[in-house]
Structure formats: structure tokens, C-alpha cells
Write a protein that binds this DNA or RNA. Structure first.
Lengths: 367, 367
DNA sequence: TTGAAAGCGCTAACAA
DNA sequence: TTGTTAGCGCTTTCAA
């Protein structure tokens, strides 16, 4: 930074001289719009119009400008453009880059953006709560033209204030707002599919392994909150209040493994409904650690990540299209950038993938 | 964008009036350094010094400025800062977000950046070649202060030109340059471990499943190029020239599955050394599709992604610490930003994780 | 259709 | 220690 003090700008020749440890280093400065204008013999405004495909440029001028751009290998500085308007950047906040379901969302978003002039950037958070807010804030500070926030742990008011400045799509959470759009899975329906499947197999002692209390706070609209709430409702409706058992864990496979182990040290349920597939893999490992097979303890996940269908894993889970969600989120953002103001909410339908990890309940051993 | 034309800037009151579909909408404008300065009764320069922790501010002034920043919820616009120097952003180009090994690199980079004033952003590429260059270019256009490029498919000269403008760490490829730093795994050593293991188990008909010709172009320094080259050398040295068999595939699990199936339709080797774990999972699926067990066909991967150690998968593979690589890449970048000019090259040591997917060669069936 | 010029929010040289 | 001021590279009015 202090180097800038010794940068001599040489406007005519495009050389930049800087003093580094005594000696003067000369390097070719990147072309600016000014350089292009001078070379093409036109004004900066003209070049600007050409690169923005704006109205009112003669074909002849367009051609000369494009030639100059080519010759100088000119690329507009995004920071400068951002100061006057758009950064042509869409930002997505990713709570946990290790989760393959989030990865699918990104793939969908990337696909929806190819062919447009927008670039996707990901701000990884990798820890709950504070970190997510930090990442979203970092995107906002970078003047992105739109933000996709994945189930952020923040108050709706906070998001609304953000959405007043920049288009926001909230992905995952079920609370709605007129300020931002939402893309969700139908977690109530997904949970219904899971619970009916397990109950239909005869299971009664069904444990629900889920995230922290903070994440599943009732009314928060977080997907895990909905899944927990519906789990409780289905257990109650089935007359199984006595069998309700909720176990908490962290956000990665290893936490789930450890917490499942602790559970199994104390008791052995006949089925475990796990908040998502990544955690379910940890549960499966723990079961393995305890020498328990699917015939003894059934496991259901959520998301249908690729590895769930792997034959040796064969995890029963709820499929929801992360690609479709990411793609839709981008589309909603682009519409908002185009000027749409009515809030829009989009939901994807879940389906149950029944695989080998769920089996009919084993006969109760004599107590 | 055209909305800007109807934005009335109200410098004194921090209100922004814009015309939207006829009616004038008034919203609170985000605070700028000017607002902070006015509220604190100091100059913009003073505020700038405070937020940069620059030398020469009295404690009293610092306190007043900080109070104003707090009161106004002021956040510096990164675009404006970038125009004058740094964007406090490190960019990483990710060739394929579905690969869990890359995910580890990102985790390492994120960890190395926590506590600093820099933010990591990821530009996903998700296709070979052109897309990678596009993503790296997009990061450069966004004035990031440093770029981590993961095995990009570009000429060293291209990278050198880039590195003349912004610090670059190339992660993966083995070619070196004085212009940029490198972080690599020791792919020759990793391949040696794999080949000695397989040969030691008695395997002779060892197929190598690898990426496209473009990716493995000899001399390109790409990790897959090295692995291929060493595979050929070890086969040759073992007197197994006749058994050499190289099969090409794409960059994801599904391609590997399809191409392995095609291979198995034609012949059945006793072992397959796959270019990385993600592809190896596809190979394992194909083996499964063909009803072949590890006792019949051994498989080795590369990277030791988390799922490789999963009991039901148990993939023999080469462990190299993606976290360490990502962390080191960030450290090298920060050093360059601090002013280091000598090129630095860092390499991580690979180790072989022997698991159930490799077994002694089965007896040759009578022809 | 074209260009001149103002200004976006910051940093840093320099003066006070 | 503090403030004045000249830009950074663009976009967008507005006048020619």
C-alpha cells in the first residue's frame, strides 16, 4: 500500500514506475478506458457506451473502439464500474462448504449464470451464526448486485434492511418478507414422507438427530426447525409422545458421529431420522463403530447427496433438487435487478428415496 | 442502472430519493466516510486513518471517529478502497466445486484468513480450460489482492503476466516461475507409493484411469500429467510395458463410472489406479455395476477425501493435506502482499492409506 | 451521434 | 496531529 506513494503515473506511455528497495521497476500498466479512447481517437464516453452496448453508437465507431480494446487487451475495472452502478457480480453465502448439498446449489446457480455478464462469487462461512453474517456483510461491502443467503442465522429485520440496498434471495428458510424473495424446499412435506415411511415400517422408537437449539429455534423458519417441529407433531399424532427423543449435534459429519456414539452408548433406538445427509453419514459411521446394521437401526437422511445412492451406503433420504434451487435463486435475483418489485417465493417438491438403510423394525427383545 | 438517473443525492440528510414507477421512494442512504467525518467533526482523512489504523491519530480523535462509525453503522465501500489500493480480498479459482479435495483446500485457506482483514471469495469454474481462465480473469477484474489458482489450464506465460499485476499462488502444477509462488503435492512420490503397493501385491495388469489428453499434456506440470508419467515409468521399470493401459475420462464421478464400465465391457484388469478419489468413486460404482469385488479388481485413488475412509467404501488412496495446501497458499499470498519478492515453492508430503479396496492379485484364470 | 465534465467513496501526498 | 486536495477508472448527464 505504501508503495503507491512512489508510483509515477505515466499517462501517455502506459508505463508504471515504482520504487522497490531502491531501484525503480518499470512495468506495463493495465490499459484503462482512457487508453482505449485515445487509441481509437474517441472520447471515454464513447468507449463506455460500446462496452455497455448502450444506445447511440455508430457501427464505424463501435468497430474502431472494439479494435482498440482488442489491441490493448483492455478489461474494465470492476471496482470503478461498481462505484457508478453495478459490479456485475452475484454473491452467494455458503454456510458450510463441506456439505455436498450446498455444492449442488452452487452448481445450479453457476449454470443459471453462464451466458450472462454476471460472475458468481462464493463467500464461505464455515461456522454458524456470526460467520454467516460476516460473509453476507462482506458480499454487501463488495457491492455485489445480488446476494443469495443460505439459511442465514439472522433476524428477518436484518435481512430486510440488507434487501433495501441490494436484491436478496433467501434460500432455505420459510419465513417470508416483501423485501426479499425466497427459495425453499417443502420441509414439512419431506418430513411427512420420512415419518410415514418409518412408522409404516413399524418403528416407534425414532430418534431425531438435529442441529443446535439456536438453529432449530421454533418459528425461525430454518429447515431444521421445521423438520424438528414436524417430527414432534408426527410422533405425537402417532401416539408416540413417550418415544420422542431429540439429540443435538454440530454441523459436520464428525460431530454427528460423536453424538450418535454417545446416544448409542446410552440406548439403542430402532430408527434415527437425521437432519441432513452429511450428518447421516456420521450417524452411519457411528452405527458401524457400534457394530449395528440397518436391520437393527434404520437411518434416514435429508437432501439426497450423490453419495447417498452409493450401493455400499444406500441411505434412505429425501431428495430435493439443489440445482433447481440454485438456478431459481439466480433467476429471481436477475429479475429483481431488472426491476421487479413484487416479492416472489418458490418451493421445490421433495420426494423420498427409499434405500437399504431403512428396514422393517426388528422384533422387540424381551426386556 | 437507468435508475441512477433519477437518484437525488441528499448529502446533508442521508436520504436517497428515487423515482420508481412514478412514485418517489425515499430510503436511507448508506453512510459514507463523509458522513462519518461530518458527524465526528473531523476531516475525511482523519476517518480514513482511523479505519486503516494508520499512524498519527490522537486517542481522542480515534474515539470520536469510532463513535460516529458505530452510530452510523458505517462500512467502507470496498470498491472505493480498491480504486486507491487494496480490496482486502483474496480470490481462489475452483475448477470443480463437486470435488471434496478442493473443498479441503478452501477450508485451509479460510482458516488461514480468519483474524486477518482479508475476505476469501471463491470463483467457481466447473469446466476445464476456458472456464478456469474466465474465473481467474474475473477475480483479477475484481481487483483482488491475491489469487490462488488451482491447476489452471493456461500457459506459464499467461500466469506470469497475471502475476506481474497481482500476487498469484499456483496450487497443484509443478512448473515453477519467479513471478508466482507454488504449492504442490509430491505427485511423483505419491505415484511411487501407489505403484509399489500394487506391484507388491502382485498386480501386473494395472490400468491407469486419468483425465483428458489436454489435462495430462506431458510437461504441463499438471498433477495428473505427473501421475500418468510416473505410472508409465513404473510400469516400464517393472518390465510391464505390455500391460500399460491408459483410459481417459472427464472430471466428475459420473464420467469415471461410464468410462470404467466401457473398459470393463472390453477387459478386466486386476487393478485400476485412478487419477483422484472423486473419479475412483465412479470406478467403484462401475465395478459394482459389473458385480466385481475388490478381491477381483483392486482400486486406488488419490487425495484421501473423507468418504474414502468410510468402512463400506474403504478406498486405498494417497493422502495429501488439502488443508495444509490451502493454508500455505494464503500465507504465501499474504507475504507477497507484505512485499516479498523472492519466489517460494512449497510441497506437501504424500502418504499411502492402504484400505480394503486393494487386495493381492487373484490367480490368473486359465485362458 | 459524439464528447465534455461532474462525481461515485475512498487514500495518501502534502501543507498547515 | 490534522486537514486540504488531487486523483483512482469508470458512468451518465447534458450540450454540441
Amino acid at each position: 500500500m505504501q508503495e503507491r506513494s512512489s508510483v509515477y503515473r505515466d499517462t501517455e506511455s502506459r508505463f508504471r514506475h515504482r520504487r522497490r528497495e531502491g531501484e525503480i521497476v518499470t512495468a506495463l500498466r493495465a490499459a484503462t478506458i482512457e487508453d482505449v479512447a485515445r487509441r481509437a481517437g474517441v472520447s471515454r464516453a464513447a468507449v463506455s457506451k460500446v462496452i455497455r452496448n448502450a444506445y447511440g453508437v455508430s457501427p464505424a465507431m463501435r468497430e474502431r473502439v472494439n479494435a482498440a480494446i482488442e489491441a490493448l487487451d483492455y478489461r474494465p475495472r470492476v471496482a470503478a464500474r461498481a462505484m457508478r452502478g453495478s459490479s456485475f457480480t452475484i454473491g452467494i453465502e455458503l454456510p458450510h462448504i463441506g456439505n455436498p448439498f450446498f455444492t449442488k446449489i452452487v452448481a445450479g446457480a453457476t449454470a443459471a449464470l453462464t451466458g450472462t455478464e454476471y460472475q458468481l462469487i462464493i463467500a464461505p462461512a464455515d461456522v454458524d451464526g456470526e460467520e454467516g453474517v460476516r460473509a453476507i456483510g462482506a458480499l454487501a461491502d463488495r457491492q455485489v448486485d445480488g446476494i443469495i443467503a443460505i439459511s442465514p442465522l439472522v433476524a428477518p429485520e436484518w435481512l430486510e434492511r440488507l434487501a433495501a440496498r441490494v436484491p436478496v434471495v433467501m434460500l432455505g428458510r420459510h419465513d417470508r418478507s416483501v423485501a426479499y424473495d425466497t427459495v425453499t424446499g417443502d420441509d414439512a412435506e419431506g418430513t411427512r414422507l420420512v415419518m410415514e415411511h418409518l412408522l409404516g415400517l413399524g418403528h416407534r422408537r425414532i430418534v431425531h438427530l438435529t442441529r443446535s437449539e439456536e438453529v432449530t429455534r421454533p418459528g425461525s423458519g430454518n429447515p431444521h426447525a421445521i423438520r424438528l417441529e414436524r417430527y414432534l407433531a408426527h410422533m405425537h399424532d402417532a401416539g408416540l409422545d413417550d418415544c420422542i427423543r431429540v439429540v443435538r449435534t454440530g454441523l459436520d459429519e464428525e460431530s454427528a458421529r460423536l453424538d450418535t456414539r454417545a446416544l448409542l452408548d446410552a440406548e439403542t433406538p430402532t430408527a434415527i431420522f437425521v437432519g441432513n445427509d452429511e450428518l447421516a453419514l456420521g450417524t452411519l459411521r457411528a452405527l458401524n463403530d457400534h457394530g449395528l446394521s440397518p436391520a437393527e437401526v434404520s437411518v434416514v437422511g435429508y437432501d439426497d447427496v450423490d453419495i447417498a445412492s452409493y450401493p455400499a451406503i444406500s441411505l434412505t433420504t429425501v431428495n430435493q433438487s439443489g440445482e433447481a434451487m440454485g438456478e431459481r435463486a439466480v433467476r429471481l435475483l436477475l429479475e429483481r435487478i431488472q426491476g421487479r418489485t413484487e416479492p416472489t417465493h418458490f418451493s421445490v417438491e421433495p420426494t423420498l428415496k427409499v434405500r437399504g438403510s431403512t428396514q422393517p423394525v426388528p422384533p422387540e427383545p424381551a426386556p
